[in-house]
């Protein structure tokens, strides 16, 4: 019993130490966001200088008053959710086909997708821009949503996880007369909730933090996402440290909420079988 208690205390101590190490920048950001105006980095000479002399909401308020922040939140939410829905549908189905349907060409496509993982976005930016322009999508929400639907990374990920769904489950459904699509929706998807949640979180975060591609494709201020919008704070002169941090903190909160809402799915323990070999 004593040993168990010691282990438990050790576990907490270790986690707390690691947790602080990882939480540090987030804390730093939030503390700085409430820092009174104009604390300069050059005035920091000791660790104590990172703590604000007193707390103020001025920075947060100015983020919402200087630009129509709510509008940008709505835009970004539209882009993020639009993308995530597409990503889950498109890549989930493809991953399922590659994992569980032994169609001709399965192997070739799978190999192709793994290889395509390496293509750097920065290398094809201009070509992609020309495609999006030809399709007439520039300066519309579709310009940031559609190109992200297909992702080699997520197809690969879905495939790896669907491999672990027992074949018996699928066969049983088929014997019951379910269509292949019905099987996928009713049987496979519910057993693979953790993957869908994971992809949701990862893609949501990715879209939320997206800067470069929206910068190129969205020229009207009305379509800006939050990252483009808050750029104004960090490039405006005079540079205002507190406001910059406040803008970053404000933008981070929604993602934080999404993660907090979804992370409980990781403790529920959905009983799928072990995942088969690649």
């Amino acid at each position: 019993m004593v040993r168990k208690r010691v282990t438990k205390i050790l576990l907490y101590v270790l986690n707390t130490a690691l947790g602080l190490l990882f939480l540090f920048p987030l804390l730093f950001m939030f503390v700085s966001a409430f820092n009174p105006a104009r604390t300069l980095p050059s005035q920091i000479t000791s660790l104590g200088d990172f703590l604000p002399a007193y707390f103020t909401f001025d920075n947060i308020v100015s983020v919402f008053t200087r630009i129509p922040m709510l509008r940008y939140f709505a835009n970004t939410l539209l882009y993020a959710l639009g993308t995530v829905v597409g990503v889950l549908i498109v890549n989930g189905m493809a991953g399922y086909a590659l994992a569980k349907i032994n169609f001709r060409g399965n192997r070739v496509i799978y190999n192709f997708i793994v290889i395509m993982l390496i293509i750097p976005f920065e290398g094809i930016t201009l070509a992609l821009y020309l495609v999006v322009r030809t399709l007439g999508l520039l300066d519309t929400p579709l310009a940031v949503i559609l190109p992200s639907f297909f992702s080699c990374f997520y197809v690969f990920m879905f495939r790896q996880f669907f491999l672990g769904v027992p074949n018996a489950l699928i066969e049983a459904a088929e014997i019951d007369g379910a269509s292949p699509f019905g099987t996928y929706i009713k049987i496979v998807v519910p057993t693979a909730v953790p993957v869908f949640i994971t992809v949701f979180i990862l893609e949501f975060i990715g879209k939320w933090g997206d800067y470069y591609w929206p910068m190129l494709t969205l020229t009207s201020e009305g379509w800006y996402n939050v990252q483009l919008a808050i750029k104004e704070f960090s490039t405006a002169s005079p540079y205002h440290w507190g406001t910059v941090m406040a803008s970053l903190a404000v933008v981070t909160v929604p993602v934080l909420v999404v993660f907090l809402c979804l992370q409980r799915y990781y403790i529920e323990g959905i009983a799928t079988q072990g995942i088969k070999d690649m």
Partner: peptide
């Protein structure tokens, strides 16, 4: 089975072709 497989792949193939393969081929030509 082939038909089912390709149907499941279809959305991915459409989006993958337009927004990944076409740009890659263009990049290759460039």
């Amino acid at each position: 089975i082939n038909f089912t497989g390709w149907m499941f792949m279809l959305p991915a193939l459409v989006f993958g072709t337009v927004f990944l393969i076409v740009p890659i081929v263009m990049c290759f030509v460039f």
